[in-house]
């Protein structure tokens, strides 16, 4: 019930925002077409500005994934994670979820196919992926677009919040799905 309402809002929100913006513009006699072009130019500038930051982050993440470092971590920390009832297959998701959104979604599909969509591993991963945001990507893009080089406490706050999110996901999944 609540989900259908939220689904409905999600799909109508974009057309709603567009129509309301255009309508208000026309009523207030804003030259909507020229104004749109003006804003769109800014958008293109931003995407050029963030490109170097994106390249730096994505290269590092691609190297990490290709090097096999994550598999090594799985071997090293498997028994430690088992103490907290975390299946070792979830570890790559825990590492990559702050780094790359498309990679983590691919990993999640793998797990769902391999262990079945109704298994504990899949559900735990689902909660972890669903509540995640690619912290390093957001940092690079948001601060990159304005040319900020010193991130100050934003970096540590982002990492700590990710760790807290992982712990919360494990706790909630153990509570509701076991």
């Amino acid at each position: 019930m609540i989900k259908t309402i939220i689904d409905c809002i999600s799909s109508w929100l974009i057309p709603f925002i567009i129509i309301v913006s255009l309508f208000c513009g026309i009523v207030k006699k804003v030259p909507v077409y020229e104004t749109f072009i003006d804003g769109a130019k800014d958008g293109l500038k931003v995407s050029v500005n963030i490109l170097p930051y994106l390249i730096a982050i994505i290269i590092a993440v691609s190297m990490l994934r290709a090097s096999g470092a994550i598999e090594l971590a799985q071997q090293a920390f498997g028994s430690f994670l088992a103490m907290f009832n975390i299946p070792v297959d979830v570890l790559p998701v825990m590492i990559v979820r702050s780094l790359s959104g498309s990679a983590v979604l691919g990993m999640f599909s793998d797990i769902a196919n391999q262990f079945g969509p109704d298994s504990f591993v899949t559900k735990l991963t689902a909660v972890m992926v669903g509540s995640s945001e690619t912290t390093f990507y957001v940092l690079a893009v948001y601060f990159g677009s304005v040319g900020v080089k010193k991130f100050r406490h934003a970096l540590l706050a982002g990492i700590l919040a990710d760790v807290a999110g992982i712990i919360a996901a494990v706790a909630v999944a153990n509570w509701l799905f076991l």
Partner: peptide, 23 residues
Amino acid sequence: ALYLAGIMAFWLGIMKIAQKSGL
């Protein structure tokens, strides 16, 4: 970045209208 460029241009265009109209 290319993919973002199009989407970013679109949304910032709409946002500029929303901004100028007082929304």
